[in-house]
Nucleic acid binder design. Structure first.
Length: 671
RNA sequence: GCGCCCGUAGCUCAGCUGGAUAGAGCAUUUGGCUUCGAACCAAAGGGUCGGGAGUUCGAAUCUCUCCGGGCGCACCA
């Protein structure tokens, strides 16, 4: 509702500016005054115009105020306009009528045409998911929730995919470990998998340790370094070629680990629509089509001299182009190698092919699709060579969001530059590298986990996690710890509840704490992970918001009503005078804040920053808790006041629940 | 050397495309449960927004520079 009023006001101001001063402002700033006593909206537009019109800000503001005042009846919800401070244009809303509109759940819609592809998680299927992967998946899943159609908004058509690098070096490393450290072959690998399953052990945990061991094994014996490096390369080559026992082992392991990843993520309500695998990008020869296209468009060329002689290279974005045009005889040494001199394609080359597919720009190429995993209300598909019909369409996206950590900035920019270079500016413009900083461990946390760390690391504020070293906190372990901590609280608070129900509640709280923790930091902040902060259920946390919702629910239960009923009663309530004064203002402030959800979601989408919504959910809960202490709803004797208090609790609860839902957090019935 | 990110209260972080007196949480101190549940609320202390210069009515926010820290810059993926 706040956004609706804001928009109609802005449109009106723009019209006045055009008619009266003949100016059009690209960005019209609107803010909220520092105190509700000054109004609900403030426009600093007079400052902006002061220089251009050679007039004092206050004089301009006064003119605008009188213009606006004459059209006041046409501005629904606006009560008055006045000049404040050095030249602010402050807007006061009609509290009663606005509250009625909010109670009736009038709000601006969000959405539009076009198919949007969100890629996230994309963990190498060779080890357990850790806290860094959690940040990725939670960011991606939350963003996807902000975009997709639901009961609150029209939304956008969205596909969620999780890219699986099942033929890369990391999987190859696990195969090397199985074959050369554990002496396994194809059939004993099968036996290992069934044995682990029968003894209820996690394959991804097994691989976590094996991956660390094999990484160390490569360089453990100086005399063997070259030989072992060769084993590694040969193994990788076998995976890429396919149709051999080595590749079969890799497929068994990577698929089993992938299934574990899906389980881990499902614990956090994270689901996928499609799992494109590198094996199909190779076997379906996506690169061949991309290569032809790139040569045709002139972004790929054969280098004939210099250090990259014999390679097919692509110019990087920026200065290299100008240098090259000045003296075409000199090789562009800064160019990115796409095809090696031995004829094999690099990672970036494959990625370009993959992204051409995402935008539907790869002629004659598509994956085969097969059902892989069933969620309660949809199927998750996986890429195959042949596939089955019918199947949904992925790819052909109008916009894509790649949730990939900031260390991949350069490769991501290479792909975007390739698209742009090929003339696909639409695609390049709608390619969002949803970049985020890593999750690291504080030295104290690392020590607590039993890792031996160097003096150098000990002095740092955080230490990067490393799968190669087996250094990190596994996602399932963290979640188990959170559930145990929440369970202990629920047990002492609600011994009367059925044990299974208590576990369910503890799980909701644990997921709330974890997802909120990963979302409360803005994307470009490195998270220095510490159990003390992550395991907290107090203060700026998910459970704080959940608790506020539970409190509101308790009020309705004891009042023998519901939130919906309380909100419906507002339509016939006499709200005159009751919203004035300090008491009324504080209630009004709760309504005003509760009316901003749409505005916040729009901001999150526009900036690809879910953290704003997390912050908002917390602020609303804070506002509600403050209200809860100031007003004892059930003891209120005046019926009109009581009805308004109930409705205020209801609107806060409705919007908190919605906000949490977008964050992927459920509200427990009790806690 | 080049590119990207960060530096705001003791600690962890917000501060949106420049706007009114720089805000939260944690920690510390104090007060509040015979009340709709205290996983809560209230109050207090705590800041030369890394340093400097510039742009202008106005800078934590934009520009430049310096200092400090992080991450990238392969014929690895």
């Amino acid at each position: 509702m706040y956004r609706t009023i804001q928009q109609s006001l802005m449109a009106r101001i723009q019209a006045i500016l055009l008619a009266k001063y003949d100016v059009t402002l690209a960005h019209l700033a609107v803010e909220q005054p520092p105190s509700i006593a000054l109004g609900e909206l403030a426009l600093p537009v007079a400052f902006e115009l002061a220089k251009r019109l050679r007039k004092a800000p206050r004089a301009i503001a006064a003119e605008l105020a009188s213009e606006l005042t004459t059209v006041l009846p046409e501005l629904e919800g606006v009560a008055s306009v006045e000049v404040a401070g050095a030249g602010y244009l402050n807007i006061r809303l009609d509290r009663a009528s606005t509250i009625r509109r909010i109670a009736a759940d009038q709000h601006a819609d969000i959405g539009g045409p076009g198919f949007r592809l969100v890629e996230h998680t994309s963990i190498n299927p060779n080890k357990a998911a850790h806290i860094g992967h959690l940040r990725n998946a939670i960011l991606g899943d939350t963003f996807q929730r902000l975009l997709r159609p639901d009961a609150f908004k029209t939304g956008y058509a969205v596909g969620v995919q999780n890219y699986i690098d099942n033929t890369g070096v990391q999987v190859a490393d696990i195969v090397v470990g199985l074959v050369h450290l554990e002496g396994k072959d194809l059939s004993s690998t099968r036996e290992l998998l069934t044995e682990l399953m029968e003894t209820n052990q996690r394959i991804d945990y097994y691989c976590w340790d094996l991956y660390a061991r094999v990484s160390q094994w490569y360089t453990a014996d100086p005399a063997q370094i070259a030989a072992r490096k060769q084993i590694r390369l040969d193994t990788l080559h076998s995976l890429e070629t396919g149709n051999n026992d080595t590749a079969e082992i890799a497929d068994l392991i990577s698929t089993a680990v992938l299934r574990r990843h899906l389980e881990t993520m499902q614990r956090l309500s994270i689901e996928y629509d499609f799992l494109p695998r590198e094996s199909e990008i190779l076997s379906l020869h996506f690169w061949d089509a991309a290569r032809e296209l790139m040569l045709e468009k002139g972004v790929l060329y054969l280098e004939t001299t210099g250090k990259n002689k014999g390679c097919y290279v692509m110019r990087r974005a920026g200065s290299a182009e100008e240098i090259a045009t000045e003296d075409t005889n000199l090789p562009d040494e800064d160019a990115k190698v796409i095809v090696r001199s031995n004829g094999t394609v690099t990672y970036v080359g494959k990625d370009i092919a993959y992204h051409l597919w995402k935008f539907g720009l790869l002629p004659g190429k598509d994956f085969g699709y097969a059902g892989f995993h069933e969620y309660p209300d949809h199927t998750c598909w996986i890429s195959t060579v042949d596939g089955q019909d019918p199947h949904p369409t992925f790819g052909k996206a109008d916009a894509i969001y790649n949730v990939i950590d900031s260390r991949q900035n350069d490769p991501q920019n290479n792909v975007i530059a390739a698209l742009r270079g090929m003339g696909y500016t639409e695609a390049a413009d709608h390619y969002t590298h949803f970049s985020y900083e890593m999750v690291a461990l504080t030295p104290r946390c690392a020590i607590d986990l039993g890792y031996v760390i160097s003096d150098e690391d000990r002095a740092k504020s955080y230490i990067e996690v490393s799968g190669r070293k087996g250094f990190g906190v596994k996602a399932d372990d963290l979640l188990d710890q959170l559930i145990a901590a929440a369970k202990a609280e629920v047990d002492t608070r609600h011994p009367e509840i059925d044990p299974a129900e208590r576990v369910a509640i503890a799980t909701q709280i644990a997921v709330g704490a974890l997802r909120y923790f990963m979302l409360r930091f803005t994307r470009n902040t490195v998270i220095a992970f510490d159990f003390k902060d992550a395991l907290s259920f107090e203060g700026e946390t998910g459970p704080y918001v959940q608790y506020a919702i539970v409190r509101a629910a308790n009020i309705f239960r004891k009042a023998n009503t519901t939130g919906a009923e309380s909100l419906a009663s507002v339509a016939t309530l006499d709200l005159s005078n009751i919203l004035d004064g300090e008491e009324g203002s504080s209630l009004w402030e709760t309504w005003l804040l509760a009316s901003k959800l749409t505005l916040l979601i729009e901001q999150c989408i526009a900036t690809a920053e879910p953290a704003y919504l997390a912050k908002y959910a917390f602020q609303l809960a804070q506002q509600f808790n403050n209200f809860y202490h100031r007003h004892h709803v059930l003891n209120e004797t005046d019926p009109t006041r009581k009805a308004l208090l109930l409705a205020t609790a209801a609107v806060a609860q409705r919007e908190m629940t919605r906000a949490l839902n977008f964050l992927g957090i459920e509200a427990p019935p009790v806690m």
